[in-house]
Every structure is written in structure tokens, then in C-alpha cells.
């Protein structure tokens, strides 16, 4: 019968809407289950994942020494030319010339955080840091030199 069918349809429709509204109402009254975090209010407690790829850094130890041999593998591995390794020749103790890194230039503004340079580095001299607040007033500030001033290569790294 038409009228019964019609009424059934209307009741079902209202029921389905009510079920949806019930769910919305549930979350309206249960604020605790809402997970939005408000940055930067939560800066003190916000912890990024250890492996988060935020920028490429070159760790230095207490003696201002790093593990970079200046082999330029990272420069070749980078798909978009974000790394430029400028090398020099050091004269070591026996008077032999040895290739070493002069400036390891890293352009954070071009980097896509793919991690290929880290994979390519034979001496693990560079790694990804989990920093993420990179906004600066001038993009030239994003061109960084990774090896510290006056730093040199760690003993024993070939």
C-alpha cells in the first residue's frame, strides 16, 4: 500500500538522521575525546618523532670535529641540487696532499627532505634533525654552511 510504504520511508529517514545526530551530540558532550592540539600553545610539550626529517645537519663532537671527508657523494645523490660541497686540499703530517671539505653548503629552501643524501654518505657525517620551525624573514638565511668554522675531520675517518 502506498501510504504505508510512504510512512515507513519517512520513519526510516528520520531514524537515520537521528542516528547521525546522536553521534554528533556524543562528541559535542565529550570534549576529552577531541584531539586537536593548538600550536604554538603546546610548544613546551610538543615532541616530534625522532626520525622526523626536518633538516640536514652535520653533527660535530666536543673537539669541533666532524666525519665528512668531502667525497661529494651527497651532492651527487641529491635530486634537486640542494647540496654543494666545496673541497680544498689539506697538507697532512707527512707532507701529502689530502682532499678535505672546505664548505658544505646546504640549501634548506630547496630541500625536499627525501633523505637520499643521508643514505649516500659513506661515513654517516650528516643526518636528519627533527627541527621544524624554519620560518625566517629572508630566504638567504636558509642557505646554510653545515661544517662549523674551524672544524676538521675526526681522526681515523677515511
Amino acid at each position: 500500500m502506498f501510504i504505508v510504504e510512504y510512512l515507513k520511508e519517512v520513519t526510516n529517514a528520520v531514524k537515520s538522521l537521528a542516528t547521525g545526530m546522536k553521534l554528533t551530540g556524543y562528541y559535542f558532550t565529550h570534549h576529552k575525546e577531541i584531539i586537536t592540539q593548538e600550536y604554538p600553545d603546546n610548544r613546551a610539550t610538543l615532541k616530534m618523532a625522532d626520525r622526523f626529517k626536518g633538516e640536514v645537519v652535520m653533527p660535530h663532537d666536543a673537539n669541533n670535529e666532524h666525519a665528512c671527508t668531502g667525497c661529494t657523494s651527497c651532492e651527487l645523490a641529491c635530486p634537486n641540487g640542494s647540496i654543494k660541497v666545496i673541497t680544498k686540499f689539506d697538507i697532512n703530517a707527512d707532507g701529502k696532499k689530502k682532499k678535505a671539505v672546505d664548505q658544505h653548503i646546504y640549501r634548506l629552501d630547496m630541500c625536499t627532505m627525501c633523505g637520499l643524501c643521508i643514505e649516500a654518505c659513506p661515513t654517516d657525517a650528516i643526518k636528519m634533525a627533527n627541527t621544524f620551525e624554519h620560518s625566517v624573514p629572508d630566504r638567504n638565511m636558509l642557505v646554510k654552511r653545515l661544517n662549523n668554522n674551524g672544524s676538521k675531520i675526526r681522526e681515523g675517518v677515511e
Binding site: I35, M48, A49, D50, R51, F52, K53, T112, M113, C114, G115, L116, E119, M128
Partner: peptide, 30 residues
């Protein structure tokens, strides 16, 4: 969100992970 956090833990990124490399994956899972 939970899923992207799990991805972030293992791959270091939330959307463009670049985790697969020829021969396997880039890192061991977290």
C-alpha cells in the same frame, strides 16, 4: 592522524615518505 603519526615514526614524514628504495626499504621500522 594516528596513521600519519605511525608513518612519521618510521619514515620521518607524514605525506611524501620516500621510504621505498630499490632493494628494500630505507630504514628498519621504528
Amino acid at each position: 592522524e594516528l596513521l600519519t603519526e605511525i608513518m612519521e615514526d618510521t619514515c620521518g614524514a607524514r605525506l611524501t615518505m620516500n621510504y621505498m628504495v630499490p632493494g628494500g626499504v630505507m630504514q628498519d621500522p621504528h
